[in-house]
């Protein structure tokens, strides 16, 4: 019994040690092995469908649910030359840029306060900042519908104060309603990265700046702001990318003026029954977003390099 076991071990040992040696020698292999569950999931739910989308975007929809799979660029020609899609692209980018700008602008002071002025219970503050995320995204959108609505909080407030004689209709169902809703919905995504980069700033740098004669304002613009730029970049990218493709907010609070590119994409896959065009629009939107984000990151890096 014992001898048999040791014999098996003896046979297995060289094979096992060969594996081990390979593992030890190749750092890359170890890395990929550690990553493999994630990589497999990414391959299954991101890469393969993405290839499917790319292929689909070069086909033509026939009646029913069949495709003519002869190669054509017509879908991309439609996506870039038809006024409707061009305007929707511009509108979506505009809404997202504004959302990003306001979110970062509003999030910065909050993150600054927690990073520099909260001394105790920071964890509680951070949990509180993520609190809105404990409710469903849809619920937050509906909340804004109630605030901005015809009989909503703002209108009833203004009416009871006698400042308006009939409810304002400009609050809801337009692009600014979309910007307001998105700004609130994505706030925590801006606060957290900015907070982290502010938290990391070496406090002695601030003391040094003060010693060298900078007032609070100059100190902020010359030391704190440049050093927190990585957080701002991360926040902007985190917010800009998903909001360009947001679909549910514009369809609930956007009305006809706030219709965005993602609504057009959804339409092509549903009632419009033109999947190839939908795929082409989705991919074009992805490429445009990527180009904008990369340009942004490069420009900001250059600017900070100059400051440094």
């Amino acid at each position: 019994m014992t001898s048999a076991t040791s014999a098996t071990l003896a046979v297995d040992a060289p094979r096992a040690s060969a594996w081990r040696r390979l593992l030890m020698r190749s750092e890359a292999l170890r890395g990929y092995l550690l990553l493999s569950p994630t990589l497999l999931v990414m391959l299954g739910i991101m890469v393969i469908p993405m290839i499917g989308m790319v292929v689909l975007s070069f086909w033509t929809q026939l009646a029913g649910n069949t495709f003519d799979n002869a190669f054509t660029l017509k879908n991309y020609a439609d996506a870039f030359t038809r006024d409707m899609y061009r305007i929707l692209f511009v509108r979506s980018l505009g809404i997202s840029l504004l959302t990003t700008f306001f979110t970062v602008l509003l999030a910065y002071p909050v993150a600054y306060y927690v990073a520099f002025h909260v001394k105790r219970h920071k964890m509680v503050w951070i949990i509180l900042m993520t609190l809105p995320f404990w409710t469903s995204y849809l619920l937050r959108v509906f909340a804004w519908k109630i605030i901005l609505g015809y009989n909503g909080a703002i209108n009833s407030g203004l009416l009871s104060l006698g400042m308006i004689s009939e409810p304002l209709t400009v609050l809801l169902y337009n692009p600014s309603a979309v910007v307001i809703t998105l700004t609130h919905a994505w706030a925590a995504f801006a606060i957290l990265p900015i907070y982290v980069s502010l938290e990391k700033i070496d406090r002695s740098l601030l003391e040094a700046a003060t010693d060298l004669g900078d007032g609070p304002v100059a100190r902020f613009f010359r030391v704190v702001l440049p050093l927190s730029l990585p957080g701002i970049i991360a926040a902007s990218v985190l917010i800009f990318i998903p909001t360009v493709g947001d679909y549910v907010t514009p369809s609930l609070v956007g009305g006809t003026e706030g219709y965005m590119i993602s609504n057009a994409i959804q339409f092509q896959f549903a009632r419009g029954n033109n999947w190839p065009l939908g795929a082409a629009l989705a991919l074009s939107s992805m490429v445009i977003v990527t180009v904008i984000v990369m340009t942004y990151v490069v420009v900001v890096r250059r600017l900070t390099a100059r400051i440094g």
Binding site: A63, T256, E257, R271, G272, N274
Partner: peptide
């Protein structure tokens, strides 16, 4: 027919978005 239904839906959508 399917073609007419699809055309109608696409027209409706493009009017909806303001075109």
């Amino acid at each position: 027919t399917d073609e007419v239904e699809t055309q109608m839906n696409r027209d409706f959508e493009s009017v909806k978005t303001g075109f």
